[in-house]
C-alpha cells in the first residue's frame, strides 16, 4: 500500500538538489577566492614597485626618483577593497577557511613590508608620508564602525594610505609590529608613530591628520572633486 520506492526516489532527488546547491556554492566561492588572489597579485606588484624604488636609491638621489601617484593611490584603494572582501568572505565561509586565511596572511605581510619601505624611503628623502596603520580584530566591538570610518577617510583622502592589520593573525611579523607600537587592544590607529587606542570618528581622525600636517586644510570635498577629474 505504501509506495516505498517513491519515498526513496524523492529522497534521492532532494539529496541531488542539495548536492547541486553545495556544488554551485563551492564553485562561486572558489571564484571569489580567485578574485582575492587577483587583488593580492595587484597589491604585490605595487609593493614590488615600492621595493624597486627603494633599491634605486642606491644609485639615484631622492630628486631623481619619479613617482606615479595614480599607481600609488591605486594601492590605497586595493588595500581597502581587500580588507572589505576578506571580511565578507570570513562572514560567509567562517574565519577558519584555509584559502581566505592564506590570502589574508600573505597580504598582511605585504602590507607590513610596504609600510616599512615607505617609511625608510621617506626618512631618507626627508619627506612626510601619509600612512595610517589600522589594527583591528575579529571579535572587537568597535572595529566594524572604525572600519567604516577608515573607508571614508581613504575615500576622502586618497593620498593617505591605510594599512589594514588584523591582529587575530598570529604571524611573528604581526606580533612584532604590535609590540613595536605597543598595541594592547583594538581598534588602534598609528599615525606618525603615535598610537591612538579606541574608536575615532572621521572628524577626530581629520584633526589628527591635520595636526601632523598629513593633509592640507582644504575642504575634503574639493579634494574628492580633484580625484574625480582625473
Amino acid at each position: 500500500m505504501i509506495d516505498w520506492k517513491k519515498y526513496l526516489i524523492v529522497f534521492l532527488i532532494t539529496l541531488g538538489i542539495f548536492g547541486a546547491a553545495f556544488l554551485l556554492s563551492n564553485y562561486f566561492n572558489d571564484r571569489k577566492v580567485q578574485k582575492l588572489e587577483d587583488i593580492y597579485q595587484r597589491i604585490a606588484t605595487n609593493v614590488l614597485s615600492t621595493e624597486t624604488k627603494f633599491s634605486l636609491l642606491r644609485f639615484a638621489s631622492c630628486e631623481d626618483i619619479v613617482s606615479d601617484t595614480t599607481f600609488e593611490n591605486e594601492l590605497t584603494r586595493e588595500l581597502g577593497d581587500m580588507a572589505r572582501r576578506v571580511k565578507y568572505m570570513e562572514s560567509q565561509l567562517g574565519v577558519n577557511n584555509e584559502d581566505v586565511l592564506l590570502v589574508k596572511t600573505q597580504y598582511s605581510l605585504l602590507q607590513i613590508k610596504d609600510y616599512l619601505l615607505v617609511r625608510e624611503l621617506a626618512a631618507r628623502c626627508k619627506e612626510k608620508v601619509s600612512v595610517i596603520l589600522y589594527f583591528h580584530d575579529l571579535d572587537c566591538e568597535d572595529c566594524s564602525r572604525q572600519s567604516l570610518v577608515l573607508d571614508e577617510i581613504s575615500e576622502l583622502y586618497p593620498k593617505v594610505r591605510v594599512y589594514w592589520l588584523d591582529r587575530s593573525l598570529e604571524t611573528p611579523a604581526m606580533q612584532t609590529i604590535s609590540r613595536v607600537f605597543s598595541i594592547k587592544e583594538t581598534p588602534a590607529i598609528v599615525i606618525e608613530g603615535k598610537t591612538y587606542t579606541g574608536f575615532k570618528t572621521v572628524a577626530e581622525l581629520e584633526e589628527i591628520l591635520l595636526k601632523e600636517k598629513l593633509i592640507k586644510k582644504t575642504e575634503p570635498s574639493s579634494e574628492v572633486k580633484e580625484v574625480k577629474k582625473k
Binding site: 546547491a21 560567509q92 567604516l148 571614508e152 575615500e155
Partner: peptide
Amino acid sequence: KLIGWDSLIAGGIRLDWFFINTQAI
C-alpha cells in the same frame, strides 16, 4: 550615523557579484 548619506552611495558601489550571498542555503 558615522558617515552620513555618503554611506548609502558607497554601499551602492559595492553592488559587486562578489558580495552576493552564494552559500548553499
